[in-house]
Design a protein around this nucleic acid. Structure first.
Lengths: 219, 219
DNA sequence: TCTGTTATTATACGAACGTATAACAAAGGA
DNA sequence: TCCTTTGTTATACGTTCGTATAATAACAGA
C-alpha cells in the first residue's frame, strides 16, 4: 500500500544545528500548549519526532535544553520586533505608534505567549542563566523604546534629558507589559481595539506625545 | 535532659480549619522559595511539619491543594489591600497616591511574590478553577481602582463617564502591574524611590490628576 | 477511667521522571 | 564498494512522584 521506500529507512539524519533548533522549538511548543509539568524529556522528544535519548546527545541536561530554548525564544522575538520596526516607515511619532500597536496585537498578544513567558519567569528566581537572559532581553527592549521615544520627542519639539527619557521608557514598557499580560490572559475581557486604543492613549499621556488623533480632525 | 512530656506525645492534633490553612500556607511558602518543581507533596508536608499522607486527608488531590492555596493567597492579598486602603485617610487624591505607593513597595513588591504569581499564571491556561480565581481577583482589584480614580477626578473637578473611568482603571492597573513585575524581578535595577516616583508621575499623566507636587512649591 | 472517633502516621505500590550506556544505521570520503 | 564517523535508537537503572491503605495515637464525651 504505502511507499516501501520508507520501510527500509527507519530514520533520517539532520544537521546538528538544525536538530538543536528543532529540539528547542519542540520544547517551547510543549511548554506553551501543555504547560511546564507536561514538558518532560519524553514529551518534548515525541513532539520533535525523535527518541528521548537524542536530547542527551545535544544537551548536557534537561535544564540546559530549557535555558537554550528560552534564549532562542527571546532572540527570535527580539529579531522579529526589530524587523517589524524597520517596516514601520514614516515620522518618529508614527513609528512609536506603530510599535505600540504591534506590541498589543497578535502574535505578540496571545495565550501561548504569556504561558511561555510565565513558565520562564517562574524559573528565573532559581536559575542565574535564565536571569541573565531575561535581563539582557529587557534591557534591549527598553533601549529600543528609549530610541523611539527620544526621536518622537524631538519631532514634537519637546526637550528631555537622558534621565527623563529613561524614566519614560520604563513607564511605557511597564504599561505595555501590563496591557499585554491582561490582554493575553483574559482575551474575552478586552477587544483588540480596546487594547490598542488604551495603549496609544496612555503612552501619549505619559510621554506628552499625542499618538491618537483627536476626534476626526487634525489628520 | 529535655522535658520528657514531649517524649510520650509524638504529635499534636489541630482543628481541621487550622490544619487546612497551615497546609495551604506551606504550599505557598514552598512554591515561593523553592519553585514549582520542588513543590512536591513531600516537600509541602515537610514544610508544614506533618507527614505526606495527611494532605490526602484534607485535599482530594495535589491539584486541589494548589487551587485552594491560590484562592487563599488572593483572598489574603485582597483583604490586606482593602485594609491598607482604609488606613489611608485624607482627600481622594491622597488616597489614590497612597494606594499607588503601597502597590509599588514591599511587601507587595518582592521576588517571592512575583515567583508565586508567575507559578499560578503558568497554570491558568489549563485549569478552569484557577482561571476563575484570577478573573475574580483581577475584577475586584480594578473596581477598587475605579472607585479611587472616580473620586479623585471628582475632587479635581474633572468630568468622566463610566466608560472613561473604566479605561483609566485598565491603564493604571496595567502600569502598576508592569512596574510591580520588573521591580520584583530585577530589584537591583530600580530603587524603591525610582519605582514610586515613576508610578506616581505616570498615573498622574494618565488620569490627568497631579499626584506629585511640582518642585518644592504647591505643597 | 474508659471508650469511640478520627486526625495522624507508617508503609507500600505503580507510574513516570531524568539520566546513562550500548547497539544500530545513515551518510560521506577514500 | 568499503570503511569510518556519529547521529539516532533501544534498553535499562535508580529515584521521586502522587496516591492508596492499614495501623496508631490523640482528644472528647460518657
Amino acid at each position: 500500500m504505502n511507499g516501501d521506500q520508507e520501510r527500509t529507512r527507519s530514520y533520517r539524519r539532520a544537521s546538528p544545528d538544525r536538530r538543536r533548533i528543532e529540539l528547542m522549538e519542540a520544547t517551547l511548543k510543549v511548554i506553551a500548549s501543555k504547560g511546564l509539568e507536561a514538558a518532560s524529556v519524553r514529551a518534548i522528544s515525541a513532539e520533535a519526532g525523535v527518541t528521548p535519548g537524542l536530547i542527551r546527545h545535544y544537551f548536557a541536561s534537561k535544564e540546559d535544553l530549557v535555558c537554550a530554548a528560552y534564549a532562542h525564544h527571546m532572540t527570535v522575538l527580539l529579531e522579529a520586533c526589530e524587523l517589524a520596526l524597520d517596516e514601520v516607515q514614516g515620522t518618529p511619532v508614527k513609528r512609536l505608534a506603530g510599535f505600540v500597536q504591534r506590541t498589543l496585537a497578535p502574535p505578540v498578544v496571545g495565550a501561548q505567549a504569556v504561558q511561555l513567558w510565565a513558565a520562564f519567569i517562574e524559573k528565573i528566581g532559581h536559575r542565574p542563566k535564565l536571569r541573565r537572559v531575561h535581563m539582557d532581553s529587557y534591557r534591549e527592549f527598553r533601549q529600543v523604546l528609549e530610541g523611539l521615544i527620544a526621536a518622537a520627542l524631538t519631532e514634537q519639539g519637546l526637550v528631555a534629558d537622558a534621565a527623563r527619557v529613561r524614566q519614560l521608557a520604563i513607564a511605557v514598557n511597564a504599561l505595555l507589559d501590563g496591557l499585554w499580560l491582561e490582554g493575553s490572559i483574559l482575551p474575552e475581557q478586552f477587544s483588540a481595539e480596546d487594547l490598542t486604543r488604551i495603549g496609544l492613549q496612555s503612552v501619549g499621556d505619559i510621554t506628552g506625545i499625542p499618538l491618537v488623533q483627536k476626534d476626526s480632525a487634525e489628520q
